[in-house]
Computed example of a mutant assay.
Amino acid sequence: MELKIKDYEKIKAYYCGLCRNIKYDFGNLPRITLNYDTTFLAIFLDAFSKDKEKYIKKNCILHPVKKRVFLIDNEPLKYASTLNIILAYHKVLDDVTDDNTLKSKIFSSILKPYLNKIPNNFQNTEENIVEKLDKLYYLEKNKNINSLDELSHPFGELTAYTIMAYLNNKEYEDALYHLGYNLGKWIYIIDAFDDLEKDLKRNEFNGIDLILNKDNMPYDDFVVSIENRLNFILTSYARECSIALESLPIVKNKDILFNIFNFGLLEKMDKVFETKRRKTNEKSL
């Protein structure tokens, strides 16, 4: 709610610009993998650039009537579009391994040829991402884990790597790593908590259930018992991100990033926690 209209419009320009980049770098079909995670990455990486933004205003296939503003000729968007394809494909590939559904098989076979379009200078990036995802999937499948900190570690490293691989700033590499690492762990744990009820119903892996539910409590009781603990963990990660951000030489997008790290993460937590409370109260009634 603290986001200004001008900043909201700028975020949409990055989002539409990323969609356009995916189209021209990979093709129309991969645009269905577009998401706000990689849009945020482009906004964050571009915050360190002194290059002036270039915009165009035109119609697109999803909005044929009202013209949209697109950010163009932007290197962070090109990087984010490549990461979007890499992460989307390997996420679907993991779904094939986990549930082996026809949908995930078809989607993975559709996306696979587009990996051939990844520029040569991104090959090491993909290899590093796959290495960190493999570590995460190994922990999830091995299930010999002692803490959420241990389980979320590979995704924290993955997020830190995707930031540092582009910026390659030696002077601020500690702060960049710290921000990316804590953000990645925050994302992993909030997603696990958001999916907790669904995963328990389907008898699927969920790190929060595995590590914290040693007494096999029913979902409603379990959610109540872990709320304060998860709130503390997630708030700690969010605070570390905010502290790291303040030490970085941000050139632009400062208001957007400040909003995301100081309000957005906490608002997302409030929504997830409130949803859990409401569902639990409705069942008890």
Rank of each mutant, 00 (worst) to 15 (best):
A80S: 15
Y36T: 14
H153L: 10
N116C: 04
N28M: 13
A80R: 01
T125A: 01
I129W: 03
E157N: 15
S104P: 03
Y55W: 11
C60P: 07
F40C: 10
K132I: 00
H153M: 08
L148F: 04
I56N: 09
K66F: 12
D94A: 05
Y138Q: 10
L115I: 14
S108L: 05
F155P: 01
A42C: 09
T97R: 13
H63V: 08
A165D: 15
S147A: 05
L93C: 09
M164K: 14
D134K: 15
I110R: 04
K54E: 10
I85A: 01
L139A: 02
P113N: 05
Y36K: 09
L102M: 08
K135H: 12
E127S: 04
D99H: 13
D51I: 06
F40N: 12
I22W: 03
K117T: 00
F40P: 09
T162A: 00
P113I: 04
L87W: 02
L102Q: 08
T101L: 09
I56E: 10
C19S: 11
N142A: 08
F122Y: 12
P113G: 02
I129G: 01
N142K: 14
A165F: 09
N21K: 14
L111H: 06
V130K: 05
K141I: 07
S104K: 06
K91R: 10
I163L: 15
